[in-house]
Design a protein around this nucleic acid. Structure first.
Lengths: 195, 195
DNA sequence: GGTTTAACATACGAGGCGTATGTAGAATAT
DNA sequence: ATATTCTACATACGCCTCGTATGTTAAACC
């Protein structure tokens, strides 16, 4: 079936896929829209019709990658024994996923510069809301000390993302990963009532 | 005295000052080198001779701002009672300083995108080294649990910088500041032996 | 005082983004 | 079924910006 809507959706996906590769390889600023769209078998006309401008395309790419990360982190967190262990597991999953160069370059480096503070993005906002709910539950639970849940969620998320950035540019990321996760867990335990 | 070295230093300062304003107002990508240098009473020739390229100018600007921040944070930390309180005070000072829109735009958003991971910058590296030393001292001291001091310093720094970014884009930063600092201190206390 | 050097200005070319206009094929109505 | 409308996309154009290559002027040195 070649209805117009499906074709348009296909082209959107093609463009986003090509943009993921181009942005990851050259960075947002150095990625050419002409070559990017040509690799997708299209032209800049399709791009500006679907996404408005270059920035709109990045927003779509970031939303896709960030949503994939959040979904994965949540699935990992759900396997944990209790809510607190789930929170730590989500953080660890985020850190590991963020070691991917594609995530690094697009979501952690170029994304904030072009799109502004990550906590305002739709994808991150969902993630923050989710961990915020978990924290509120843990406070009522008596597991976590009374603390502003929004701020706490932001701090945990921020620490995890930053840790990934730091890890990736270290000499031996795989070797440093365990120590980093250990430090992260220790840091997070500051929110616990008893430890 | 109009010796060549002093004049060159003056021009360097003029360019950096103009760049601070231009980058803060329009962002790195949208800032034009032609208008920027014209505002400094010079041309692009001076720029490329002094800094190599646009990126080199940003590096100089970031180094200046970041060093100012680090100096201020350290002076605040030195006034605290003990080393641990000093560490917390430094973190709080960083968060407050990073509320400045100039710092936000240049150091926190554009800097990482153009120059890469902040922990690799000379200025940030000095700051990380300093807090790392403090943490090592606190571990020997018996105040802080045994943890990788490098990772711990990075996590504290990262959390502080991210908190500032989040704070600035909140609806009422000044009102949220106390709660954020409280949450930050609580989080940091995870490193303590007893709390 | 003449020569050299270097800091900065000027001139040039290449490339990229955004928009305005053109076009072909699907959607809709009669 | 055919004519019309609409829209997703292609093509063409202009403006701006960066980086470099060349020119110029004034300090530095012998």
């Amino acid at each position: 079936m070649s209805t117009r809507l499906t074709k348009m959706a296909e082209n959107r996906d093609k463009l986003i896929a090509a943009a993921r590769r181009a942005f990851a390889e050259h960075g947002y600023a150095a990625a050419s829209m002409d070559t990017l769209t040509a690799e997708a078998g299209l032209t800049r006309g399709a791009l500006y019709h679907n996404f408005g401008d270059k920035r709109g395309l990045l927003a779509a790419v970031v939303d896709q990658i960030d949503s994939e990360m959040a979904d994965y982190a949540k699935s990992v967190g759900a396997k944990a024994g209790d809510a607190w262990q789930g929170l730590l597991a989500e953080g660890a999953a985020y850190i590991e996923k963020a070691l991917d160069p594609e995530v690094q370059r697009i979501v952690l480096l170029d994304g904030p510069s072009v799109l502004g503070d990550p906590s305002q993005w739709p994808s991150q906002n969902k993630c923050l809301q989710s961990t915020r709910n978990t924290i509120e539950q843990l406070i009522k639970n008596g597991t976590v000390k009374p603390v502003d849940p929004e701020a706490a969620a932001m701090l945990l998320n921020g620490a995890a993302l930053n840790a990934a950035l730091w890890l990736a540019s270290s000499s031996d990321p795989q070797a440093m990963l365990p120590k980093t996760l250990e430090a992260f867990n220790l840091l997070a335990s500051g929110f616990l009532v008893k430890n």
